[in-house]
């Protein structure tokens, strides 16, 4: 465990909690892509099946349980409890265009052709693109609430910190996981355009809105 990985994990946790609290406190999930949240719930479910097979540390287990729990709570709020506020008309990204190629790739490029390992690989690939429905929704409506942009910022920050973590681990532990690294780079790149808008607009106190 190094400082980049820890802050990366905490940043990820912050993103998840910010989103959940925003929805809970405002009793509204307007502007949030339910599809992205379902994809994230699927990501955590398929990745953390090793909760049942191997114990790594109390920290590891606790964080996994919190991530899974929060992601399902978010999906529950969006599709059940606060369904009336869900902006489904603008959440029109076709997720099968992500799931099918990602599933195929997980079968073709993995560390080991076993069920758990393929599901883990699937979750890594899926996570790298799971935010696309949310970004698509923002590009469609042309704006995002400031709190939503904070959520996206912490989610992107988590990824950027993990990249530094992998450089660290390569130098000091000789560890590298090519699948995680390539997917992580792709994921971070997807956030770059958003980061630019966040720094130039949101941090200067303006609302994030895109030119028509």
């Amino acid at each position: 465990m190094n400082i980049f990985r820890l802050t990366g994990d905490l940043s990820h946790l912050a993103a998840i909690i910010i989103l959940l609290l925003k929805i809970w406190k405002s009793r509204s999930c307007a502007g949030i892509s339910g599809k992205s949240q379902v994809l994230f719930a699927l990501v955590f479910t398929t990745r953390y099946l090793d909760l049942l097979t191997s114990f790594i540390s109390l920290y590891n287990t606790t964080m996994k349980v919190i991530y899974i729990g929060c992601s399902y709570a978010t999906v529950y709020l969006i599709y059940m409890k606060l369904k009336a506020t869900y902006d489904g008309n603008h959440d029109t990204f076709r997720v099968e265009f992500l799931i099918v190629p990602v599933g195929g790739l997980a079968f073709l490029v993995n560390h080991d052709f076993s069920p758990l390992e393929i599901l883990w690989t699937f979750s890594i690939y899926l996570e790298s693109v799971a935010i696309l429905p949310q970004l698509f929704m923002i590009s469609k409506t042309g704006e995002a609430e400031t709190i939503t942009t904070h959520y996206l910022f912490f989610l992107g920050l988590y990824r950027a910190l993990y990249l530094i973590n992998w450089i660290w681990r390569f130098y000091f532990e000789g560890f590298f996981d090519m699948i995680a690294i390539v997917a992580g780079v792709v994921q971070t790149i997807l956030y770059c355009d958003f980061f630019y808008l966040y720094v130039t607009k949101v941090l200067k106190g303006k609302k994030l809105s895109l030119p028509a």
Binding site: R5, D9, D50, T53, I56, H111, D112, L116, W120
Partner: peptide
Amino acid sequence: REFTYIHDEL
């Protein structure tokens, strides 16, 4: 071959 990959990252 029985080998389980340990993925220690989140």
